[in-house]
Write a protein that binds this DNA or RNA. Structure first.
Length: 101
DNA sequence: AGGATGACTTGTG
DNA sequence: GCACAAGCCATCC
């Protein structure tokens, strides 16, 4: 697919599925695990696309390096809280406790 | 080919 | 912690 490499997308989803409940991972972290440290943006792109296509992946467990949630997706916080992820008052994920690995 | 864009990251102030 | 800038990289027009 020209829109996004199938391999890459598949790997991203595979990693995301591995994230245990109550934990979160950053885009850069995932990108690094796949040998694409510089392509953190692609991870986000992959998740956005996949959610539009199927929406069957736990992409809510992926946040940016600051613990920031996806812009324009308030439901994500609810989902994470439901899994036991710690949140700060400002609405950020408590990476200190919940960052995966 | 070239510039704009973005679910990113890191560094400064 | 917030705002801004620079760096990176694939995609879109």
């Amino acid at each position: 697919m020209t829109q996004l490499d199938e391999d890459f997308l598949y790997q991203v989803l595979a990693v995301v599925e591995e994230i245990p409940q109550g934990k979160v991972a950053t885009y850069g972290q995932i990108a690094k695990l796949m040998g694409r440290e510089k392509n953190a943006r692609l991870v986000g792109r992959a998740l956005r696309i996949s959610s539009l296509y199927e929406g069957d992946s736990p992409c809510h467990r992926v946040v940016n390096s600051s613990g920031r949630l996806v812009p324009g997706w308030d439901e994500q916080k609810i989902l994470l809280v439901g899994e036991g992820v710690s949140f700060k008052r400002n609405g950020y994920v408590d990476l200190k406790k919940c960052q995966w690995e």
